[in-house]
Design a binder for these strands. Structure first.
Length: 350
RNA sequence: UGGGGUGUCGCCAAGUGGUAAGGCACCGGCUUUUGGUGCCGGCAUUCGGGGGUUCGAAUCCCUCCACCCCAG
């Protein structure tokens, strides 16, 4: 006997397996479930058709199967402003932003939440691999798929109104459970890359919004001009490809000057600017209270191993002294802090 | 046509008698809800052309061709 739960939950359904199963589990748990497809991006890009219509169809198919209400929230304008424009703006400043984190902060756990609540929802849910407990954000049971890295900018309030139904399961289990329930998305390939960029690649995507601007590629050690690029904006720290440089070893980007429009490279894998032992974060978000000074585990990029690091503060900024230097930590990227399995928050590399 | 130099995969580039490194680019695949990285596989039976020496040459010799620099 399923106990009827009158709580109304709006679950974001992307058309993938994870959110499909999330919706299914919520139904089984007795919630009053409404599936919502967020229409964030619909434009086709050169060489890549936007799959939004197919994704929408997949989401709806699952909703019908589950017998739940289904809605489409059109966030295309807001998404463009809050995520795409932010991303482009950061690149113009010379940073390397993480648009998916901004998407979660501004769209999924703000706009979607607000819109759902206004529409009568009590809570929202998504298919993220994460868990909540006592108003804390916890890593997913499947540490290999954990997505808390992308969620660290969520607010306490949003978190208290959010469910992550699949956070208790591993990806293989999720697929198995989806298949057992006859969900049509059970075997659908995982999405990857920025949702709206897809297969196009950031380089080509940016190229649609930014003019090309020829500049020099300079060897950091010798100061020699090794080649030319179409704009420093297209390069990021640690990058190896896209420079068409010959030689005997691969060249890596170790810096750039946006004003001079110069990109600096080296073949030295141990170059000092390629490795960071001290990381300063700005624009920090703490999910609960501000943690005390001490040693924590941090993650420098999605799926990167948790590494030991010492937290301290300086004015508005947070400083981390790393146990071991990390490679290619670019400004604009995010670092997320953990205490055991609890995600405490994070900030943007300064 | 006096002197010097160089010609190795689309590009860069190792290799100076022992049976063609590597990088970039490209193609395919893996990893991945950010950038980037990384990994696997493919990619010159052939070293500007032609002769010769040698068991064996991209590597030595001869010759031709092309390009570059200096001198004009």
């Amino acid at each position: 006997m399923v106990v009827k739960n009158k709580t109304k939950v709006y679950v974001g359904m992307s058309g993938g397996v994870d959110s499909s199963l999330a919706a299914s589990l919520l139904v089984e748990q007795g919630y009053d479930v409404t599936g919502v497809y967020m229409k964030n991006w619909t434009k086709d890009l050169p060489g890549a058709k936007c799959p939004w219509a197919d994704d929408l169809a997949d989401a709806k198919r699952v909703a019908v199967k589950l017998g739940i209400n289904f809605k489409v929230f059109d966030f295309e304008n807001e998404y463009k402003h809050k995520v795409v424009d932010y991303m482009i703006g950061e690149y113009i400043k010379g940073n390397t932003p993480n648009p998916d984190i901004m998407c979660n902060q501004e769209v999924k756990f703000k706009l979607f939440l607000e819109t759902a609540l206004a529409d009568g929802a009590d809570m929202i849910a998504t298919g993220h691999y994460a868990r909540t407990k006592d108003s804390k954000l916890l890593m997913a049971v499947d540490t290999n798929k954990d997505q808390t890295y992308f969620l660290y900018r969520i607010t306490d309030d949003a978190l208290s109104k959010t469910l992550f139904p699949i956070g208790e399961f591993t990806k293989p289990t999720v697929r198995k459970m989806a298949a057992e329930r006859g969900l049509s998305t059970a075997a659908k390939k995982d999405s990857q890359g920025i949702c709206f960029v897809g297969q196009v690649g950031i380089r080509d995507f940016l190229g649609l919004y930014v003019d090309q601007k020829p500049g020099d590629i300079i060897d950091k050690k010798s100061g020699k001009v090794l080649g030319h690029h179409d704009g420093a904006i297209f390069f990021t720290l640690g990058q190896r490809h896209g420079m068409e440089l010959g030689g005997s070893l691969p060249y890596y980007v170790v810096g750039k000057d946006m004003d001079k429009n110069e990109v600096y490279v080296t073949t030295d894998l141990n170059d000092e600017t390629l490795w960071r032992k001290t990381i300063v974060l700005s624009d920090v978000n703490w999910i609960n209270e501000v943690p005390p000074i001490g040693v924590y585990k941090i993650r420098v990029r999605h799926r990167a191993p948790l590494i030991e690091s010492t937290l301290s503060f300086s004015d508005e900024n947070v400083i981390f002294e790393l146990e071991n230097p990390q490679r290619a930590v670019a400004t604009g990227q995010s670092v997320v802090i953990y205490d055991g399995e609890i995600c405490l928050g994070g900030g943007i590399v300064f």
